[in-house]
Design a protein around this nucleic acid. Structure first.
Lengths: 216, 216
DNA sequence: TATCCCTCTGACCAAATGGTCAAGTTTTTG
DNA sequence: CAAAAACTTGACCATTTGGTCAGAGGGATA
């Protein structure tokens, strides 16, 4: 196959290898999300990935190395969402875009969000570096932006830090507590219309809550 | 000791037994919160409770029975907070009291909140009954109250369900993600002043967000 | 003191689990 | 085509873990 060349761009890894790794990582995400790091078993991950456990250990020597790869991916997705805060200097647009993006991530990668939550609850054994460097810097720079908006009178005087926590909490809730939300929805996950309603309700409350009068 | 009579009110359990059970339950809460159900080991729980593992199994025959007791306690605390929604018919007071109460619970029983979160992420194997009965009924009745407030024009038209989810998410975040919040606070948990600030910021955003103009 | 009941605990066991390995099979390369 | 490199896998192992058990305190009551 001629796609070989494209695949080899990625560290000379064959298509088959990439496919196996992808299957393992996907399975690992679901198992780590459901049982936490200690509760996850490599046997179950291998089973969900459709290959023998020994084969899984060929690609990922230890459970921890596999876990690290999964956490890495999650953090990269988080960083992508973080960028939507930069695209625009209008507070209303910046915040509503950021909230919308985080909601979409909760819907599209719920397992990633759960693993993040689990990591933090365990005291961040793997992500502590990220928390102390990248996340801390990102958070402070966004607080600075919010403070500038406040100084310019475009946003009501609030503590930007706790606004960010509110946004993180409210959006990630739709992933981390998806099972509870589904149970309270008759056992079914939110459909598209409900999800949009949740998103709009959240954005509406936050924007008005920080003193932005929405048009429309 | 004359307190004996008081203790015997509780199913004839001796002081010593109650004390041992309390120590075990406290230890169990911290271990389940940190490692999840599967990751928690009875050996570690026993160690943190300061007694041999065999003794723990004398009081709680299986790990699951111990876990159920811990989850029961959490749910009872949750119900207590839920009542603060009933004490008052004024939307501003009812909601600000409820949020404040939930924030206090996050500060005072962070492990309980983490175990709840972990349970939900596992698909609610133990709490599913609660979710489908008590929680569902409580949620619907509160949505009805919010809808009445809206009909009376005392609150902006919003979807009450997603307002509740926002409140749960934002308040429980301070327990579940306490480690992340501490890391972003220079490694120290929020002090009293910061915690109050977070509480006031949250209440302020929510009240204004649902169209209640606060005085003061 | 003798009896009874509750509590405590070290030693033990079977099952589960992370990880290894040698012996294969397949794919790539010279 | 042959050799080498990469991949696959069943069997195996050491450790961990939930739970058991026999027997040892220890404090009431008669």
């Amino acid at each position: 196959m001629h796609q070989n060349a494209a695949a080899e761009n990625n560290s000379r890894k064959s298509d088959a290898r990439l496919e196996s790794e992808r299957a393992i990582l996907t399975a690992a995400e679901s198992v780590f999300a459901e049982f936490g790091f200690k509760g996850a078993t490599t046997a179950l991950i291998a089973e969900r990935a459709g290959l023998p456990k020994a084969n899984l250990h060929y690609y990922f020597p230890t459970k921890e190395s596999l876990y690290r790869r999964v956490v890495d991916r999650i953090f990269r997705i988080w960083l992508e969402a973080a960028r939507s805060f930069d695209d625009c200097d209008d507070p209303a647009q910046a915040i509503s875009r950021y909230v919308a993006k985080k909601m979409e991530i909760s819907r599209d990668y719920p397992n990633g969000s759960k693993i993040w939550a689990s990591e933090i609850m365990m005291g961040g054994p793997v992500m502590q570096d990220y928390l102390e460097t990248t996340l801390r810097e990102w958070t402070q720079s966004r607080i600075d932006i919010i403070d500038r908006w406040i100084a310019e009178g475009r946003v009501r005087a609030i503590n930007g830090r706790y606004l960010l926590y509110l946004i993180w909490a409210a959006t990630q809730h739709y992933a981390d507590f998806g099972h509870q939300i589904a149970t309270l929805n008759g056992g079914e996950p939110l459909d598209d219309a409900q999800f949009c309603d949740a998103q709009d309700t959240l954005i509406g409350i936050i924007l008005r809550g920080i003193g932005i009068n929405q048009s429309g």
